[in-house]
Design a protein around this nucleic acid. Structure first.
Lengths: 243, 243
DNA sequence: TGAGTTGTGTGCGTTGCCGTACTGTGTTCA
DNA sequence: TGAACACAGTACGGCAACGCACACAACTCA
């Protein structure tokens, strides 16, 4: 069917896609496709990181785990970015965890290869650094959001971020999982989700959320969504949507 | 009195101090000493950043401002680091604000000079990247902390971080200012501070906090303090104390 | 088909914090 | 010296979210 060869549509990852052809070609020998399985833990806190990942489809949560077993999401990564920033920032470990949130697939690369490529100081370095800046803003805004904003706005924001990265309004998610990401009770998510459903903004059933009215959801979201979105678009050359 | 010349004790900033002499010497021509005045706003959200700062003494808060005028601290910078990371990450603006929290002084450098130095890929690059990693961990932990931990632990943690960076247990701080940083009510800070004072851990009076029992304070702090501290020590070659 | 598992609805008492407000006490000026 | 101001003490009603718990519904698999 498709007459497009592998190199012309090599990946849906926007960082890799932004590379000039010769740089991408050099890298592609080291890129290995992998599946991202729902709930899979790709990085465990403080364990050596062997690979970095460039998602094509699906999303990964960067999660901070606390002593009592609670956890809170610090950031979300989809095909707009990569995870494993600590590798080129100079560390082989990180106290943060990476968990697959929406299943999909990614291209991964050995950490030492990425480090060497980064050191060359070409386009990849620029792209990774700009992504790092966007990621920092995402976390910082989350820090403020977690402190100030009520659960309803946070849930709406979180679902919008998922939709952006999933390239779809059909999300395989349980209230339980969302609760862990937002750092709240499951029951709290159920209540907030019920409100959104009553207003016709989403519809959900057993482990599945459909976003029916994106515009309505944007109205329910806290201010943090547009702040972070703008920053991503500005830094990563957004076209209005993340994908 | 002191027979030490300017170059042998050029600064108390630990990033600059970690540079090899020849690299520092090249930079020093571009380093300009500036005072950090209490409450001074060094970066305003989304306004072009012309200089980066390497604090010697004093601390600066990186603050996220929300629409309703509330604000929450995302990170704290003292002589262990620098601020203006967005400059070498590839952006001239940032939605975050930088406010002087404890007065002191810093060395500043023009943004374009720093960018060029960074691009050389020598030690400064390594140091700045490692610092960026530590800073990310700090913000991420704050995001979780803001969500989960009660105000008493957060206050203790915040005071410890101040003490580390101030190289002193005598802090010029009002409850009002602390409240803005923690993103809570002033009254909430007063209550939490009163508890610490009752236990003999701190003593305060009109705009001044003395830390009397550091060990006791560590016991009151939430887990986030040691997590972030360890990461800073690990990445920036800590000696047990930040200064 | 029926038992077990997983996901959601809902309720209830509790609590930490919010918003607000007013008082009292140091500090700083005119 | 006294007025004005900035900072801290304290109180009170209100509420969002918490922890917990139980019932029911949907899906899975023997």
């Amino acid at each position: 069917m498709s007459s497009l060869n592998a190199l012309s549509t090599p990946t849906r990852n926007r960082i890799l896609n932004a590379l000039p052809p010769e740089e991408f070609e050099r890298l592609s020998a080291y890129l290995e496709p992998v599946e991202l399985m729902l709930g899979e833990v790709l990085y465990r806190p403080n364990e050596p990181i062997t690979h970095v990942y460039f998602p094509n489809v699906g999303t990964v949560s960067i999660v901070c785990q606390l002593e009592d077993g609670k956890s809170v999401e610090a950031g979300m990564v989809g095909n707009e970015g990569m995870f494993g920033v600590c590798v080129f920032l100079g560390s082989v470990t990180s106290p943060l965890q990476a968990v697959v949130q929406l299943p999909g697939n990614a291209l991964r690369m050995r950490a030492d290869v990425l480090r060497a490529e980064f050191k060359r100081g070409e386009h990849l370095q620029d792209l990774l650094l700009r992504y790092t800046q966007a990621f920092i803003i995402q976390i910082a805004q989350t820090a403020a959001c977690n402190r100030i904003h009520p659960i309803d706005g946070r849930l709406a924001r979180w679902l919008l971020m998922c939709q952006d990265r999933a390239a779809s309004g059909e999300l395989q998610l349980t209230h339980e999982f969302i609760a862990v990401m937002l750092g709240t009770r499951r029951a709290g998510v159920s209540e907030a989700a019920a409100k959104l459903q009553d207003e016709g903004i989403i519809r959900y059933r057993r482990g599945h959320v459909s976003i029916l009215n994106r515009h309505g959801m944007e109205g329910k979201s806290c201010e943090c969504y547009p702040v972070v979105k703008k920053e991503f678009d500005r830094l990563l050359g957004g076209n209005g949507r993340v994908w």
